[in-house]
Design a binder for these strands. Structure first.
Length: 470
DNA sequence: TGCTATGATTGGAT
DNA sequence: ATCCAATCATAGCA
């Protein structure tokens, strides 16, 4: 009733000039509604307002009938105009219309995440990107784990589907509701003034409400993805044996660098890449640099702890190396004969600094002492593996001089293998492959044989070097 | 199911 | 940052 009074009071204060009044009836002047006539009009308007105010308390049918009669009431247009004016004056229609345009950062985060995970946005290869990203994050992973991979993808697709279905539902419901409200407002606008702005605002409110529901949907979708992903990552964290090929590659490197089994970062990358290649050929897992590091760390420690156990393996890989070294030596000989056929022993003035063994390197060497120290033999690049190679060659077919002549200033493992093989060959050492005394007592691979102890005639200035190309 | 092998992790040393 | 050493946790096998 207060409202009614207020409106009526407002009515009294509103200038109605310019409003045509249907039926030739002029509304009373702003002030001075005295007299019976004025009271009657007042009463009339009061009645109408009363009916409007109570319309919501009535049943639908009643209200409908009342609405109709009100719409047809002769005072309606005038009253409507007045209401419009009042509304305009009081700024009701604008109240609260300030749109908080700035998007919720939380919502933005959710959107970004869903996009990144491949849940929202365009379908991108079943979100495999996210899967591989997750895989890469743990550094294991790979083509081999197709079961987990596809499982992850399937689950993600499922989440994606649910998300989109729900989203669609929400959108549909939102649209339906908006349409409904708009129709309602349009309908109501026949009896009360509703500006387009107001409708807009109402639509905005509805959208905000629905978007808060959407946000919940997004949130739970994100949670689902996170859970899935963490499970996926956990699964990846599980230990998986490297492929045979990968292990072979690593072992080959290890045993051929037994003197200094510490691959440089580049070497590790190279090894990882090599292992990767085996995958692209359809075998095994990807191996990252850190996994290579792990592998070497484990290998070194385990080798050191139980050299005897690894003897067989060492021999095996040495034999393998020998095969390739044979070709290398042959090639080297071929080259040396071609380039400089008659320069005996002149070839070991290594220019390649990699061939210089210093104390640090030799400390880490795993070479058996047979090549170092008292026996009068000398340190050799790759002497361990090269010696092994010679076992494979089984004989002194290659004279050091011959080879040496041809290897001046040549770098690279192949040629170094050739050199060391040729120089390191010693019948008397056969059968002492990878003897445990390659390790010192300090946990290092090897005690450094000082360059001065090297007695080889081929040494020249300085020493012949370990293959610490790392 | 128990054992061994092996990749990964952790803490400390350098 | 890298390495060692110990340890964990799991794969693979008998």
């Amino acid at each position: 009733m207060d409202d009614q009074t207020r409106i009526m009071q407002s009515l009294g204060g509103v200038t109605l000039a310019g409003h045509s009044v249907q039926g030739g009836m002029a509304l009373p002047p702003s002030h001075g509604l005295e007299g019976a006539d004025g009271d009657g009009r007042k009463q009339d308007i009061g009645d109408i307002l009363q009916q409007i105010m109570t319309i919501t308390d009535q049943s639908l049918d009643e209200a409908q009938a009342k609405k109709h009669s009100l719409n047809c009431h002769r005072m309606k247009p005038a009253l409507f105009s007045v209401l419009c004016e009042i509304k305009e004056k009081t700024g009701l229609s604008i109240r609260g219309a300030q749109d908080d345009d700035l998007q919720d950062p939380q919502l933005m985060r959710l959107d970004n995440m869903l996009l990144a995970e491949g849940v929202s946005g365009p379908e991108k290869g079943s979100a495999s990107a996210a899967a591989t990203a997750a895989a890469a994050a743990v550094g294991g992973a790979g083509v081999d784990n197709t079961v987990e991979h596809s499982d992850y993808r399937a689950k993600l697709t499922q989440i994606r589907q649910i998300y989109h279905t729900e989203l669609e539902k929400y959108e549909q419901a939102c649209n339906e509701f908006t349409t409904h409200v708009m129709n309602l407002l349009r309908e109501q606008s026949r009896t009360r003034p509703i500006s387009p702005k107001e409708i807009e605002r109402m639509v905005g409110i509805i959208h905000r409400k629905f978007s808060s529901i959407q946000m919940q949907l997004k949130q739970s979708t994100c949670e689902a993805v996170m859970i899935l992903r963490s499970r996926f990552l956990d699964a990846r964290r599980k230990r998986r044996n490297f492929s045979k090929q990968a292990t072979e590659i690593l072992n080959e490197y290890f045993y051929s660098h037994l003197s200094n089994p510490y691959p440089s970062e580049e070497a590790k990358e190279e090894l990882a890449k090599k292992c990767q290649i085996t995958i692209s050929q359809g075998v095994g897992n990807t191996i990252t640099v850190s996994q290579v590091s792990n592998w070497f760390g484990n290998k070194r420690i385990r080798y050191k702890k139980n050299i005897g156990k690894f003897q067989e393996e060492a021999n095996l890989y040495a034999a393998k190396t020998a095969v390739s070294a044979t070709h290398a030596v042959a090639a080297a000989i071929h080259n040396s004969q071609a380039d400089s056929p008659t320069t005996p022993n002149s070839g070991f003035q290594m220019k390649d600094e990699e061939f210089q063994m210093d104390a640090t390197e030799s400390k880490n060497s795993l070479l058996p002492n047979m090549f170092t120290g008292s026996s009068g033999s000398f340190n050799l690049p790759n002497s361990g593996d090269m010696f092994m190679s010679m076992q494979g060659l089984n004989g002194g077919s290659y004279a050091g001089a011959q080879v040496g002549a041809g290897v001046q200033s040549q770098g690279g493992d192949t040629i170094r293998h050739a050199i060391s093989q040729a120089v390191g060959y010693n019948d008397g050492l056969r059968g002492h492959l990878y003897s445990p005394h390659g390790l010192n007592g300090n946990g290092g691979w090897h005690d450094a044989p000082t360059p001065s102890s090297v007695t080889s005639p081929t040494e020249g200035a300085g020493s012949v070097h370990s293959d610490t190309s790392n």
